[in-house]
Write a protein that binds this DNA or RNA. Structure first.
Length: 485
RNA sequence: GGCGCCGUACCCAAGUGGUUAAGGGGGCAGUCUGCAAAACUGUGAUUCAGCGGUUCGAAUCCGCUCGGCGCCUCCA
């Protein structure tokens, strides 16, 4: 498998430190608000990486942290007149709820900064002991000028950054580029005891401490959004290497942004959609909407930006409808139970090989989806001649290759074929819920009778009534009728 | 100002040195159907922002220009 490494700026063969074992650390969310589509993309990209490595037979340890002490949390708590603990509890819960909705697997470890204070303090002390940090009034800063490798990940010369630093510089710092490892406590803020007085950790140090704690000083993959390359990941490397005296993460994996009208989706710009509103205000069942979002996000390569909009979401829905439509036809008994042919088995074997080639090539999910659609067309062409066993094999192939992507796992009869849309106006109506399978069968019976008597006006009105409640009818060649929601 | 990414058909999007430039959406036409729906068939870029260069050969490598975006400050 090849994976693009930000550290070298190249696609490289992935070789883990310990054969057949992989350690992954991903920078998680700061829990101060609902998570939006950008967070969903991050979670889904690394969920796919993790699952595919497992598909490839690796034993994966996946660590994704919660940042639960931070300026934004403190501000949120102050704004709402509640405690930081309440804010943290509320949004950790919201995050886990949304990840479950999206079918994102729970990481093996979900460490929290506040539960690793001793690791953090020990790491800061190690950096101080080596002379690469200094203390000012209860704060501790990392001295960037003494770290020769600084700037390697983000490929920017330290001198250039200093020249045009737009940050309001804390004049007490020895150098504008130096960053804080420990912040002295301010009144009313969460604080912990340390050798430098009460205070709280700087943002970057928590990830260094937690990754080293759970995966060791040197581990395989460290990931996050590309906005974290500088300064967050650059600083993590500096701190960790200084503290442990060993190499830090070996492969750095960064994904692109979700954009709205081509502009980065961000809390500060206010141009974001939360996972919650997308799932709850959709007129499709939750698992269906979630799979559409996944398909949409995976239809662009993970390193590129992906523009979130109704039209491409609708396109993803239509593409998935085609696949689940095939699954329904495959679930029906064959017209003639012919003997399985070897050429068809070869088709499935070739597909799986192509799937693996595409995934091995830096997770080329757009190509995987194209191959899935190609297979769908191929199966549709010969569908009627397939044996019971071959039909089962097709469904099984989609299920197996779809598993690392989190796609094609739903039962075809629970899929919803209605148009996907958002907003209150298009929400599921109460009337839809009243359509029991029995009632639908009854309607289909009545329509069949009408058709038999050539009473097409009656037959069509029944079909329209069902359609208005989201029930779609399809007449088969043998005279029977298939329905779907 | 520094660093970096992107520009492929109506829309989305793979391909990044070599037979006919994947796939999806949408459009149009046909088969099927009482009519539909679904499925299937046919129909799409002599061309990859523009201009130069390297090469036997470039969407793919190099240079420049134009256009869009991101990071340098919290950020997935």
């Amino acid at each position: 498998m090849k994976i693009f490494n930000t550290l070298t700026n190249h696609k490289e063969p992935f070789v883990p430190l310990v054969p057949s074992r992989v350690g992954i650390y991903v920078c998680g969310v700061t829990v101060y608000d609902e998570c939006h589509v950008g967070h969903a993309r991050s979670a889904i990209v690394f969920d796919v990486l993790r699952r595919y490595l497992m598909y490839r037979g690796y034993q994966v340890t996946y660590v994704k942290n919660f940042t639960d002490v931070d300026d934004k949390i403190i501000k949120r708590a102050a704004d709402e007149g509640i405690t930081c603990d309440t804010v943290v509890g509320k949004y950790m819960h919201a995050y886990s709820r949304d990840m479950k909705r999206l079918g994102v697997g729970i990481p093996d470890v979900e460490p929290r900064a506040t539960e690793h204070m001793s690791d953090i303090i020990r790491m800061i002390q190690a950096i101080l002991d080596k002379g690469l940090a200094y203390r000012i009034d209860g704060d501790v800063y990392y001295r960037v000028s003494d770290c020769p490798a600084y700037g390697r990940l983000s490929r920017r010369p330290v001198a250039d950054m200093q020249a045009v630093a737009r940050v309001e510089v804390d004049t007490r710092k020895h150098d504008p580029m130096d960053f804080s490892l420990w912040k002295a406590a301010k009144p009313g803020e969460p604080a912990w005891d340390s050798p430098w007085g009460r205070g709280r950790p700087g943002w970057h140090i928590e990830c260094s401490a937690m990754s080293v704690r759970h995966l060791g000083a040197t581990f395989d993959i460290h990931g996050g959004g590309k906005d974290l390359i500088f300064p967050h990941h650059e600083n993590e490397i500096a701190q960790s290497c200084t503290a442990t005296g060993q190499a830090f993460a070996r492969y750095w994996v960064h994904h692109g942004f979700v954009t709205i009208d081509e502009a980065k989706m961000a809390k500060s710009l206010g141009n974001f959609f939360t996972v919650r509103e997308i799932v709850e205000q959709s007129n499709c069942p939750e698992p269906v909407t979630a799979e559409v979002l996944r398909y949409f996000l995976l239809s662009t390569h993970y390193r590129g930006d992906v523009n979130f909009a109704p039209a491409p979401m609708a396109a993803a829905k239509a593409a998935l409808d085609n696949i689940y439509d095939l699954f329904i036809r495959l679930s029906e008994p064959p017209r003639h139970d012919s003997a399985p042919g070897t050429s068809f088995r070869n088709t499935l074997t070739a597909f799986q090989k192509t799937f693996e080639e595409a995934m091995d090539d830096d997770l080329n999910t757009p190509r995987v989806l194209a191959e899935c659609q190609h297979l769908r067309a191929e199966v549709n062409q010969g569908q009627q001649g397939l044996s019971r066993e071959e039909r089962r094999d097709v469904r099984e192939t989609f299920r197996r290759c779809g598993a690392p992507l989190g796609l094609f796992q739903l039962d075809e009869h629970t899929w919803s074929f209605r148009e996907l849309s958002f907003g209150a106006a298009s929400c599921r109506t109460a009337a839809d819920q009243d359509c029991t399978d029995e009632w639908i069968q009854e309607q289909i019976q009545q329509r069949a009778q009408a058709r038999a008597q050539q009473a097409f006006a009656i037959a069509d009105s029944i079909r329209e009534t069902l359609a208005s409640r989201g029930i779609i009818l399809e007449d088969r060649p043998d005279g029977s009728t298939r329905w779907k929601r």
